[in-house]
Amino acid sequence: MNLAFDLLVGLSLVWVAWRIVGSRDHFQAVVLFITFGLILSLAWTRLQSPDIAIAEAAVGAGLAGVLFMDALGGLSSSPGSPRPAVPLTLLFPCLILASIMAIAVLFVPEDFLGLIPVVHGALTDTSLEYPVTAVLLDFRAYDTWLELGVLLVAVLGVMGIRRIGSISGSRLPAPADPVGRWIIRILLPIMVLIGGYLLWLGAFAPGGAFQGGVVLAAAGVMLWQAGHPSLGLLPRLWWIVLLFCGFLSFLILAFWSLFHSGRMLAHPENKLWILGVEYAATISIATCLISLVLASPGRCRVRDN
């Protein structure tokens, strides 16, 4: 039964991916992509990686669909546009790459545990209980820090291309009229609650800053979709503070630990430090993702109230 399920999910992923690439209708490709995210989440679940399954669920359902739908609304595509040609010359390198990866899997010993024993052994050195969060915020804090930097660069890049200096007064790609304001009252409290819940969960179970941040970002984008200015309400200075606070908190931690213990990013014993860094990262991730969506080209000014 396990094998049947895994085979079905794996083959469906390949088939749906192939349909996305070969689809003539852009809208069909978008819907297939949303479906792809769902099946991918099932696959991550079967691979016993609930962290990635939760992240995929949040990004795939919460943000990717909105971005694609709005991008599609901005394109003036005729339904009879020609089938996108998949260059056959790419097929050969792709097949070679796939075979190399398949062979590599065969060489992995069956009882291979990777870094799991190392991480579990080092858990006593940190104040975190959950290994994945410990890796992200403590053992590999440098990576997480730079990833926050990557998100910032992405926002700066979009702002640069759009030649705008802030997201206030950003325009919706299609007006919010059919979406009633009442939806805010229903969804906003639940989204904020679940975003906070996932953030809190990260200390001892799958969840954490990224997953929580994405759900909070979805809440911000939902506000914007319902015609509310969302983060555009904030004064520019506050917006910049929220955007950079995650990156800055790691920077402060790096300097502080360098002067106090002589090692960069060595977490102090106090658990408050880790909590502070994680919360700041969550706020920054949410702000960056909302800004990326709000900075998208639009035609309709959001109603100010």
């Binding site: 919460g62 909105v66 739908m69 299609a174 979406v179 979805a218 979709q225």
Partner: peptide, 8 residues
């Protein structure tokens, strides 16, 4: 979320 964007 995707439905909201679709309806708009």
């Amino acid at each position: 979320m995707a439905v909201l964007a679709f309806v708009r």
